[in-house]
């Protein structure tokens, strides 16, 4: 379960203080597929970075399965990102000179999974996101956008995370591929009981989630 309580993130920009996330609170049950809608610059990505321990909140608590990650030291945050979180980025953020298979194997390597096992599991995950086997060995920078996003989802699933955070996962994809990705995420949430939170400005995507939130001027409201 994900529980966010009164989270604030403050930036200083010259003389001004900016609060892209200002007192956000919500809770998501295990296996929920949720979306946060908001315009560009509304603080969606900032909130996502706080939930994924990419950045630290100025105040407030983020609790994942009863662990308050806001108070974890850096070393444990690394373990949290590795074991409990799966990230899917708008720009995919694959390592360009590694193959699709190697990209999916990376989180498992960091988790200490043996080579044979991680190779096998990475192939299974790529098959699961419907990437054909002939593409497994292809360098990431030679895959299409849709293929790269599928590899990114497979990578996010590598260590069986409790929570998948997706930042505009269909933002750079055509409609057909976007639909495929949405279906894949929903399937993961409902069948694997993985909590999935996507931030998007795509209403079509948000309409297919279990819960919808809106973020405007740092404040979160649920539709």
């Amino acid at each position: 379960m994900l529980s966010v309580t009164d989270v604030v993130k403050t930036f200083n920009s010259g003389d001004r203080t900016i609060k892209p996330v200002n007192g956000v609170s919500f809770t998501l049950e295990q296996g929920t597929f949720a979306a946060i809608l908001g315009k560009s610059g509304s603080g969606k990505s900032t909130l996502l970075s706080l939930l994924g321990a990419l950045d630290k909140a100025s105040s407030g608590d983020v609790v994942v399965d009863e662990v308050n990650i806001s108070k974890l030291p850096d070393r444990k945050l690394t373990a949290y990102r590795r074991d409990d979180i799966g990230f899917v980025f708008q720009q995919y953020n694959l390592i360009p000179n590694l193959s699709a298979l190697e990209n999916v194997m990376l989180p498992m390597e960091f988790a200490g999974v043996r080579h044979g096992e991680r190779s096998k599991r990475a192939a299974e995950l790529l098959n699961q996101v419907e990437l054909t086997e002939e593409m497994h060995g292809r360098k990431a920078n030679r895959l299409s956008g849709g293929m790269q996003q599928r590899v990114a989802i497979a990578r996010a699933l590598a260590n069986n995370p409790k929570l998948i955070l997706a930042d505009e996962p269909t933002g750079n994809l055509d409609d057909e591929t976007g639909e495929l990705i949405i279906a894949l995420l929903r399937q993961l949430a409902h069948e694997k009981k993985t909590t999935i939170l996507v931030v998007t400005h795509d209403h079509a995507l948000a309409s297919q989630t279990d819960r919808k939130f809106r973020l405007a001027r740092g404040k979160l409201t649920e539709d």
């Binding site: 690394t78 990230f87 990376l106 989180p107 960091f110 988790a111 990578r155």
Partner: peptide, 8 residues
Amino acid sequence: VLKAIGAA
């Protein structure tokens, strides 16, 4: 990216 996916 490496840190985001768990690299120490």
